[in-house]
Design a protein around this nucleic acid. Structure first.
Length: 543
RNA sequence: GGGCCCGUGGCUCAGCCAGGACAGAGCGACGGCCUUCUAAGCCGUAGAUCCCGGGUUCAAAUCCCGGCGGGUCCGCCA
């Protein structure tokens, strides 16, 4: 809805209607700073220009009025806009869609199957999964991928570890991690075992059946655990793609042929490509004839480009240089390039995490701890055991997801367990609580719903405007791939509703006023529910 | 050493791309609000050299240059 308001402002402004200079404002529903730009060119005061523009324009569509203040041109929505907003929200189950279309691939998480997901992976999952949810809502046909790096050195070491130390009887991904960590220790004190690792890798790439069986078994164990964790935090993948598939299906050969035909490959002993603008050359085939990660990844991207219109990868910032090289190579080959969403590392107060060294906080551990803390809060509220478990699980998962989601991807994070467990600062439960407050009102009334914009007080009007903005934020996330701004939006909405809740009684109101407020509460609860769902956070009706 | 990212009240963050209306939230501190729709809520007070120094501009947290601090990358690893 808000997007329509922006369109109407652009129409109203005519030749001065540039989206870049149209902004949200605390002084108006929308404002433009275009007069400042024009004033600069003409060397006159912005106020003059703004006055001049306002005098000329005729408000169109949803624009109820325009004013010139200090060089800003402010726009206000009319009653019709408010009315249509509530109507659309109450009627449209798919509120938030912006009518986008096309096939989009989002690859995220893709953690090596050598242990459980840790809190760094969670950041990737949460960003990726939330983007997927929001893109879907926008209207895109989204497919999500988890790319399983089954061909790496770390997998060979894992297999070695499983062979030497076996697997303990615990959650399979944790058991795998233990074997992997032990194998790394063993390797450190016995460097001669390197040969064994190399041999495993070589055999795997050459499809030695027995080796394949061992790898597959270890990987599937790890993935079973990883999948269980992801399911718990509401992270879904449509497909799990194995790196080795791209050797088997011929795409690696295809990409090598492509590169060769472009005359890019320098065949020394290994196959090397020199890339303009990069210090180091890229090796795409080892001396022993095997492929490298980048080779298979190029093949994967060729495959992606054939099937999808838009490709998004969610990667850790440590892959930035690699990503730039990949994009450059794809560019040279004329293959559709992915958009890469980089996120900075999550570290612990004592330093960076490492699965190999066993220095990490697993997602499972975090979930359990946060859940215990959440339970403490509701244990004396008269809920049944079952309800307590359900609510604390929903609250814990919400808290974890929101904690990662609300921080801009480019910000490095230092994870603090005490803060993760502090429910005073948990903003997800604030939104969930706000939703259950709205639900509580809805449960207690069965009156008619009838929205009357002219009856709205300031807070109520503000609230409706915020409701109207949800599709606009979806539009922004889809364009900027920054899901944190959606989290911000949801907080803003919840906060405004709580203000309304305090000042405007619903059940005690009468007549038209009551019907009007019920309409507002109904719309708010719906938008909160949809918004929470988009963040992968459960909307709970009682807490 | 070079590339990239980050540096905003005591703490955690938003705002920076497309410069403009008093730099916004939350936590923490202090003070208030439950015979009234769930107080996991609300209101108020205190608290900011927007890392530092230059520059561009009528106007800089935002753009440019130079520093400082932290992170990260620079494998015939993935």
């Amino acid at each position: 809805m808000f997007l329509n308001l922006i369109k109407d402002v652009i129409k109203t402004l005519g030749e001065h209607g540039d989206e870049k200079y149209i902004k949200e404002s605390e002084h108006a529903d929308l404002t433009t700073t275009i007069a400042f730009k024009i004033a600069k060119e003409r060397k006159v005061s912005p106020q003059e220009v703004a006055d001049e523009i306002v005098a000329k324009i005729t408000p169109r569509g949803y624009i109820g009025g325009a004013e010139s203040v200090n060089g800003y041109i402010n726009f206000f929505a009319n009653y019709e806009f408010l009315e249509d907003t509530i109507e659309v929200i109450l009627k449209d189950e798919n509120y938030g869609s912006i009518g986008a279309s096309g096939k989009v691939l989002i690859e995220h998480t893709s953690a090596n199957p050598d242990g459980p997901l840790h809190i760094g992976h969670i950041r990737n999952s949460v960003i990726g999964d939330t983007l997927a949810r929001i893109f879907r809502k926008a209207g895109f046909d989204v497919t999500t991928h988890y790319y399983i790096n089954d061909m790496g050195r770390q997998m060979a070491i894992t297999v070695l570890g499983v062979e030497r130390f076996g697997l303990k009887d615990k959650k399979p991904d944790h058991a795998i991690a233990e074997a992997y960590i032990s194998a790394n220790r063993l390797l450190e004190s016995n460097p001669e075992l390197e040969k064994e690792v190399e041999e495993l890798m070589l055999k795997y790439e050459n499809f030695d059946r027995e080796t394949e069986r061992k790898f597959k078994e270890a990987i599937e164990k790890a993935m079973a655990g990883i999948k269980a964790t992801m399911e718990r935090i509401n992270v879904n993948h449509d497909e799990f793609v194995w790196e080795s598939d791209f050797i088997k299906n011929g795409y690696v050969d295809k990409i090598l042929g492509f590169l060769e035909s472009k005359g890019l490959i320098k065949k020394e002993r290994a196959w090397i490509i020199e890339l303009e603008g990069f210090d180091k050359e890229v090796v795409i085939k080892r001396e022993n004839g095997t492929s490298l990660y980048v080779t298979r990844d190029l093949a994967y991207h060729l495959w992606k480009s054939e099937k999808f219109e838009r490709i998004i990868n969610v990667w850790g910032a440590d892959h930035k240089l690699y990503g730039a090289q990949l994009l450059k190579l794809l560019d040279i080959l004329g293959i559709k390039k992915p958009e890469i969403v980089f996120f900075e590392f999550v570290s612990l107060p004592e330093g960076r995490m490492s699965t190999r060294r066993g220095k990490f906080i697993s997602a499972d551990e975090l979930i359990e701890k946060v859940k215990e803390e959440a339970k403490k809060i509701i244990v004396n509220r008269g809920f049944s055991e079952e309800e307590i478990d359900k609510i604390s699980e929903a609250v814990a998962i919400g808290a974890i997801r929101f904690d990662f989601l609300k921080v801009a991807p480019e910000k490095p994070m230092v994870f603090d367990m005490n803060k993760a467990l502090d429910f005073e600062r948990q903003t997800a439960s604030y939104i969930q609580y706000t939703y259950s407050r709205a639900c509580s009102i809805m449960r207690k009334c069965d009156e008619e719903v009838e929205f009357s914009p002219e009856l709205c007080e300031k807070t109520e009007r503000d609230l409706v405007i915020i409701l109207a903005k949800m599709p606009y934020y979806i539009y922004k996330v889809v364009n900027e791939a920054r899901p944190n701004i959606f989290a911000e939006y949801m907080l803003h909405l919840a906060s405004k509703f709580n203000e309304f809740y305090r000042d405007y009684p619903v059940l005690k109101a009468e007549g038209e006023i009551k019907k009007n407020r019920i309409a507002i509460v109904a719309a708010v609860s719906k938008v909160l529910r949809i918004g929470l769902e988009l963040m992968g956070i459960q909307a709970i009706e009682r807490m």
